[in-house]
Design a protein around this nucleic acid. Sequence first.
DNA 1: CTGAAAGCGCTTACAG
DNA 2: CTGAAAGCGCTTACAG
Lengths: 346, 346
Amino acid sequence: LGRATGQASITIYDVAEAAGVSIKTVSRVLNRESNVRAETREQVLAAVSALNYRPNIAARSLAGARAYLIGLLFDNPSAGYMSDIQLGVTARCRAQGYHVVVEPLDCASPDAAAQVAGLLDALKLDGLILTPPVCDHSGVLDLLDARRTPYVRISPEREPARAPRVQVDDRAAAFQLTQRLLELGHREIGFIRGHPGHGASHLRYAGYVDALARQGLQPAPERVEQGYFTFRSGVEAAERLLDRPGLTAVFASNDDMALGAMTVAARRGLEVPRDLSVAGFDDTPAARVVWPQLTTVRQPAGDMAAVAADLLIARDLKAAGGGFAARELDFALIERASTGPVAARA
Amino acid sequence: LGRATGQASITIYDVAEAAGVSIKTVSRVLNRESNVRAETREQVLAAVSALNYRPNIAARSLAGARAYLIGLLFDNPSAGYMSDIQLGVTARCRAQGYHVVVEPLDCASPDAAAQVAGLLDALKLDGLILTPPVCDHSGVLDLLDARRTPYVRISPEREPARAPRVQVDDRAAAFQLTQRLLELGHREIGFIRGHPGHGASHLRYAGYVDALARQGLQPAPERVEQGYFTFRSGVEAAERLLDRPGLTAVFASNDDMALGAMTVAARRGLEVPRDLSVAGFDDTPAARVVWPQLTTVRQPAGDMAAVAADLLIARDLKAAGGGFAARELDFALIERASTGPVAARA
DNA sequence: CTGAAAGCGCTTACAG
DNA sequence: CTGAAAGCGCTTACAG
């Protein structure tokens, strides 16, 4: 019951009375409007902190243009990824007096967009943050555009220029990781693709191809298998890759699939990285849990989420030169024990 | 901007006009109050669905006793566990027209309670759900009690009778898992304790002791090591356990530590489960990611969270016989490949 | 630079 | 069984 029970909660009227001004002046100070005498401002601020006043969000939402509430939409989260995202969003929101409403969504459901509509009808939000794969759900995007609801997409794959976004250069990251494997002497590098039409699957594959090309190599069809970002699909793709001789490394488009590949290697009596190097993408917590620990790419998920929140709060959704705001953050290659030189093979 | 922009949002006045009644009557129908003629109710409901009306939560929160908002407090979540919890809470809330505000908390921070106070001041909530270890943070509990804010604790360890709670019988679960190891012929079963004074550490240890006692055994000091629920602490505890000869099984108080134990076994050339059986607790996603897959105990985290939401929404916080509401859900023993008969050893 | 009035969209308490 | 009035705690226009 929050402020309803217990001590009567203090309102803007209490602050106004304590400061000897009208509620409008208190409101001005709180919202950092101009045209308040410095002295008046001080009095109000003193009263605010003396009374430990905190504006009621519901009242603000009802009366004004801001709701102090940000929605976070996600589906089928890699738990570790979503945890990072949430921490990033909430930390930034807290600093700005905002709060976060989470809404899991089933992208496969025919009424995913209707669910979002229900959310928007019930709750005024200052904006939404969409994580993969929700950020590529055209029904949801259409709805948000139609309602002119501000939103920021994190790591969108399709139509990136359609709306504000925060991302990492997936292609460059996959390029660098592949290049590192090449430096280690690997030439027969298997690749497990991510879910087609979701996530950064195509970009990561393109980065792999780029790196091979730079070495004068072409991706051999028998070295590339389709996966779906799940552990199981990684197992299955790795089985197919390892059925063919000569493979010395596997680069999976995410960690879960890389862990699947490590499992297959173990089953077949292959020691990682002596007999097979394995690399992933995402740096999920599980990457450090397996043995040997997984070489991977870290996306700054929390930072990306914080930047998305910033854009929404600042209403900074347009780019300077036209189009939508776009922010690109740095990734990091995390080289652990699951990769090694090909020369070390028996 | 939600309803602020785009088409002017429809309000209770629109519905009242369409149904030919007053807004008070619409409100009655929406809130399932009594004293509405069946025919009138039908008219209102027809207007509601024709207009696709959804009551504004901010207005309801401001005017009434309910906020249609539930807060979820957590700290240092095992990502997989928190993901299950969130899915459980949000699914139930959505069905009831509620929404979920998430607030990560740093329990170690001196102003954890102040952060919660800030949340309560800004946002009217119908109640809070506290997950471990927040559910055992006395400063936060004191604050909530002082403000008479409804809350439900999930798997509390300390002072369980202090407030409403939802839990699993940790002691019985640890008992059953230990008993299963005994059935497999193990007699030298190492135990890695959980973080002292947090989680269900003591209950799980008690279950282990119970099962040994029933077999006429006592826990040997050299078979019990302290851990802290982290992967690393599991590694360290397992190193100490395996330095002593004769061990045939390790039961870790959670999965992360069990994975640490498996890592140590791998390093030492011990094959699981042939040379060493390993069991965990929680059934985190990582339990299925390792090879061999981990035997563990599944807590129905999502169900527990859903039940907690139910209690809050129904305001069903008192037990029939006095005291607070308490719900105990069933756990499940998940026997996978990381445990096996001791007889199979070389 | 400051304030009085109106209103956001509901529910509450009170009449009838 | 139904409704008119007041009010929740703010912000928005508008005056001065």
